Amino acid sequence: MGVQFSQVFPPSPNFTSDNIPNQTGKVILITGAASGIGFELAKILYRKGAKVYIAGRSEKKARTAIENIQRDVPQADGKLVFLQLDLDDLTTIKATVETFREKESKLDILFNNAGVSQPPVGSVSKQGIELQLATNCLGPFLLTRLLRPLLENTAKIAEPGSVRVVWTSSQVVEFSAPPEGMIMSQLTGPPQDPVVNYTNSKLGSHFLAVEMARRDGEKGIISIAHNPGAANTNLLRNAPWMKFFSSPLLHSPVLAAHTLLFAGLSPEINVENHIDAYVIPWGRIHPGVANNIKQAIERCENGGSGKAKEFWEFCDERTRDYA
């Protein structure tokens, strides 16, 4: 339980903005950066000179976030750009990527940071898919899939190990995932339990990170999942009772942003170790995920259950018509 306790009460971050070089020339896309952890990460990277795309549904909220960052960091050399993105509507994501590609010829880091937690029972996406699965997995999967050619081209000219895709999981997975890791039938027949569906979506995000690492590691793209840490954000806006009872354990979004910073830029993560690496607060490599998750991640030919591969194929099939 030691590693679990240390994720609830993490040590101070050792990898901060002081550890990273100037990011001028880097193009970084952060989903859900209008508030919370993504906002704080965008502020750090903007201060270091990066061109940061704040991707989300609400242009008004994004513009306000951009104004607030520019006010707080008046001397920065970076750039902040809004990008319209609606992760729960698969029909719109291709247009988002086309808009991005009209503006940029490279992409150094994609932070799949946006997410939804425990919406009202029965909430679904525009395509009628359970909302957490759609927003936390299918939308990011399709976005990443459509951006992969740009990531691959960037990796050919960038410093080795610098082109990355960062996926957001959660500590709840290690506490709540069933012995088999994931019950695949719950993807097409979701239970009337938003916590179970949230757990599936966050484990799914971890699965996607691992499977992308296997597929694209040789192309120079690092793919890695992380538990950002329990931060006081609006993620739990749909479960106010849970936020109330957990409030003594919630930390500043600034601290949680260091988890993402580590996943996105730390040299401790490289093309040799990213398949097995998983980042925990506030920027450390997990010494070893729970056995049921490890078993689900391993492919059948290596003695595992192959659930991660199966989940990737599920996402591929569900998003194929929108690519």
Rank of each mutant, 00 (worst) to 15 (best):
S223E: 09
A239C: 12
F207A: 12
I275Q: 14
L235N: 05
Q186C: 03
D276W: 06
E159T: 15
T233Q: 08
R215C: 11
E180T: 14
S266G: 04
N238Q: 04
W167T: 10
S246A: 14
W241H: 10
R237T: 07
E180N: 13
T188E: 10
T188H: 00
N232H: 11
I157Y: 02
N270D: 15
G229R: 08
T199W: 01
N227Q: 04
S246H: 00
S266C: 05
R164N: 05
G264F: 09
P228E: 13
G161A: 12
N232F: 12
S247D: 15
Y198T: 11
H206A: 11
W167A: 02
V195E: 06
Q192N: 13
W241L: 14
A225L: 02
I224N: 08
A231H: 05
N273K: 13
A256Y: 03
S176M: 11
D193W: 09
L208G: 01
E174C: 04
D216F: 15
A158H: 12
P179I: 11
W241D: 11
S169C: 02
P228I: 14
P160N: 07
P160V: 06
V210M: 09
G264N: 06
M242T: 15
E218T: 05
N273F: 10
N197M: 04
H226K: 10
A213P: 08
T188Y: 00
P178S: 04
Q171A: 05
A213E: 10
G220W: 01
V172F: 00
A256P: 04
F245W: 14
N234A: 11
G220I: 01
N270Y: 04
S246R: 00
K156T: 13
V163K: 01
G264Q: 07
L203I: 15
L235R: 08
H258N: 12
F262N: 07
A158K: 08
I157C: 06
K202A: 13
V210R: 10
I157K: 11
E174A: 12
L260S: 09
S247I: 13
W241C: 05
D276E: 15
L265G: 00
P194M: 07
S176W: 02
K219F: 01
G264Y: 06
V165I: 14
V196S: 14
D276M: 09
T188G: 02
M182F: 02
L203H: 06
F175T: 06
V195F: 09
P248C: 01
G189N: 13
V210E: 10
G204A: 04
S266D: 08
A209F: 01
W241N: 13
P160I: 12
A213N: 08
S266N: 03
V163S: 03
Q186Y: 14
V254N: 03
L265I: 00
V271H: 02
P179F: 08
S170W: 07
N232R: 15
G189P: 01
K243R: 15
L208S: 00
P194N: 06
S176Y: 05
E272W: 09
H274R: 07
P248T: 03
F244M: 10
V210H: 11
